[in-house]
Amino acid sequence: MPPGHFFHPTGRMRVRQEAAMDIAVDGLCKTFRSGSRLCCALHQIDLRIRAGEMVALLGSSGSGKSTLMRHLNGLALGDCGSVRIGGLDVQHRGRIHGDVRRVRAQVGMIFQQFNLVGRLSVATNVLAGMLHRLPLWRSLTMRFTRAERLAALDALDRVGLVEQAWQRASTLSGGQQQRAAIARTLVQKARLILGDEPIASLDPESAKRVMDDLAAINREDGTTVVVSLHQVDFALAYCPRTVALRAGRVVFDGPSIEITPEILREVYGGDAASQQRAVGSSRIVRPAHSPPAAAVAAV
């Protein structure tokens, strides 16, 4: 039960909302030690994401996007602060919650490198999404019922991969693997999908399909979606809200349509600008770091 439940006039309301996969990050910080050098990856992150939102996490490499993402479902452990999802503790002051698997069961995660098990069939990879609700003797012996296998095929059908269901996952293209990973979150019945750079290793066409699938799941099922991206145009096109990180701090959090070239310069520009100054020429900022003209014009 969240603190303040008995005193807050809308306490009941709040419980209901939190049960619907609100994300609450409070004062989360994380320091990495590489040799003798300390490197502050996350600096006092406070973040609220409400159920049903589709949020982009922007920032250049090393800004802390992936680190933050991995803290949300407890794959990584912070030094201080807390993460709660749907009213359940994920981690608190550098300690993972004992029952974190109950939270993870409701949180699907997709990864830059897809993280499928290449030697298992696509269908088995997808069925792995329901391990958390199977009795142990069935999950360890890989005994899935007919209904469960049909559910996996349904999920694969939704991402257009039902034909490939019985192939090994390693035989799929990158885009197909990512969509199979999305199907796994469907079978998992995830109420929240975390995408850790889900399209960073994909060609533009595959990237678009993956983002289309995520947007459809968000729209049709009301699943909360949080994706880290480094292509600004994808954030603008698919995510109503953007959270931008720079050097482990939130530097922008608001509607994506409010992103201006000035804000982007603040998010990405520092390095490029200082580089330009150092070179002393009017070199063009790397395209990956600048918003496409059309997208900004649309704003």
Binding site: L75, R102, L116, R184
Partner: peptide, 11 residues
């Protein structure tokens, strides 16, 4: 990474 993918499902 695949192990992490399985872990993330709550297994």
């Amino acid at each position: 990474r695949p192990v992490e993918g399985i872990r993330a499902t709550g297994a």
